[in-house]
Computed example of a mutant assay.
Amino acid sequence: MKSKKIQRRLGLGSVVTLGLAASMGLVSCSGSGGDAGGGNESGEKASLVIASWGDPFTSATQEFLVDPFVEETGYDVQIVDAPGKYVASLESQQQANNIEWDLLDSTSAPDAYIAYDKGLIQEMPADVKERVSEVLPEDAVTDFGITWSILGYITACNAAAVDACPQNTTEMFDVEQFPGSRTSISTSPLVNLSLAEVASGVDVNDLATHDIDIDRAFAKLEEFKAAGGTWWGSGDQYMQVLSTNEVDMGFGYSGRSYAVAEDMENLEVNWEGGLYNPGFWNVVEGSKHSEAAWEFVEWIATHPEAAANWGQALGYSVPNPESFDYIEPDVAETLADFPDNRKQLGSMNFNWYVENYQEVNDRWQEFLRG
């Protein structure tokens, strides 16, 4: 799929309504009826707390996942907003011996691997892992959770601003053949290093087991940065620098790229040589209701229509292949797990990142300052 320009129907009306409820303190919900189960040692009914990213994430999770789960189980479930602060917050909670959360909604992949390495999230029970593995693809199930809110880091280019747009990651790094100001994410060194390695000739199919050549990757990124342009730190900023013509092209979230394309007729979006980036559902180490928390994770994995509703509302992909039976075709074609898109993306080597975390992040900060 070389280029897509489509109109996405995000279906956010009810999400916005719930967002207003969230701002008034109404997002937490409490179920009634049924055998709650999942209690602690004193027999108290489970009351799960989910850490999420704020609206529209929080409202979509509430409407499409939490509400039907509560209706079935009778559990109490509350959502709290903690955007981008999972690892630091869990470290603080652990140090204070005061675990406040049970579940993490859509932990970014690098953070999930770091959190597991630090002992901040739980290993999935063997019986849960066995059951979810029967319905999810092999690469959607890890030792510590299931993939969720999956996106692609892909290329986008304003065709009206340049003579020719790059059609893939390698061409995006070719600043001589494709001149123009560029952007990329400022908060994820692993993403940028992985993209640089693809541009250096590493096959996307080998990325997941490839040890990044740090010197080579940073040298390639220096060439990219020399082309100029603002590096974005949030999805909103990424959309802004594209839509206001602050940059001509760059790498960004797939969902955000298509959102810009709705109003920017000349924006070309390409998946070739991009990165597959999952989030994760995780259970917090030290949760007093871990059994009920894993029940919620399993419920999500085994309810493809609910997952589809969540994914379609936000423009993120979900792992259950059956979910695509419930997603409108024009939305499905913009998601990372759509077959034509998935085969063009590489998976990052998160284990390598854990092992080289300090060196990579130190050099990344130097790179950004330089």
Rank of each mutant, 00 (worst) to 15 (best):
residue 1 M to E: 11
residue 3 S to D: 13
residue 5 K to I: 11
residue 6 I to K: 08
residue 10 L to T: 11
residue 16 V to G: 02
residue 20 L to Y: 11
residue 20 L to A: 13
residue 21 A to D: 15
residue 21 A to F: 08
residue 25 G to D: 08
residue 32 S to Q: 11
residue 40 N to K: 01
residue 46 A to T: 05
residue 50 I to T: 04
residue 53 W to K: 08
residue 55 D to M: 05
residue 58 T to D: 15
residue 61 T to F: 12
residue 72 E to Q: 15
residue 74 G to H: 12
residue 81 D to E: 13
residue 91 E to Q: 15
residue 92 S to T: 13
residue 97 N to I: 01
residue 98 N to L: 03
residue 98 N to Q: 13
residue 102 D to N: 13
residue 102 D to S: 08
residue 102 D to G: 05
residue 112 A to I: 09
residue 122 Q to K: 09
residue 126 A to W: 02
residue 132 V to P: 10
residue 136 L to Y: 12
residue 139 D to T: 12
residue 139 D to C: 03
residue 142 T to C: 04
residue 142 T to Y: 00
residue 146 I to Y: 00
residue 153 Y to L: 15
residue 157 C to T: 05
residue 159 A to C: 03
residue 170 T to G: 15
residue 171 E to K: 05
residue 172 M to P: 12
residue 180 G to K: 02
residue 183 T to M: 06
residue 183 T to P: 13
residue 189 P to S: 12
residue 195 L to R: 06
residue 198 V to P: 10
residue 202 V to Y: 02
residue 205 N to G: 15
residue 214 I to K: 01
residue 214 I to Q: 06
residue 216 R to D: 13
residue 222 E to W: 02
residue 227 A to C: 07
residue 229 G to Y: 04
residue 230 T to W: 00
residue 246 E to V: 12
residue 251 F to Y: 10
residue 252 G to R: 03
residue 256 R to M: 14
residue 260 V to W: 04
residue 262 E to Y: 02
residue 264 M to G: 01
residue 266 N to H: 06
residue 269 V to G: 08
residue 274 G to H: 03
residue 278 P to T: 10
residue 292 A to C: 07
residue 295 E to S: 15
residue 296 F to K: 07
residue 299 W to H: 09
residue 304 P to T: 06
residue 307 A to K: 04
residue 311 G to H: 04
residue 316 Y to A: 05
residue 324 F to E: 10
residue 327 I to L: 05
residue 329 P to Y: 01
residue 332 A to E: 12
residue 333 E to H: 00
residue 339 P to L: 06
residue 342 R to P: 05
residue 345 L to Y: 05
residue 348 M to E: 13
residue 348 M to G: 08
residue 348 M to H: 04
residue 352 W to Q: 05
residue 358 Q to G: 06
residue 363 R to Y: 06
residue 364 W to F: 13
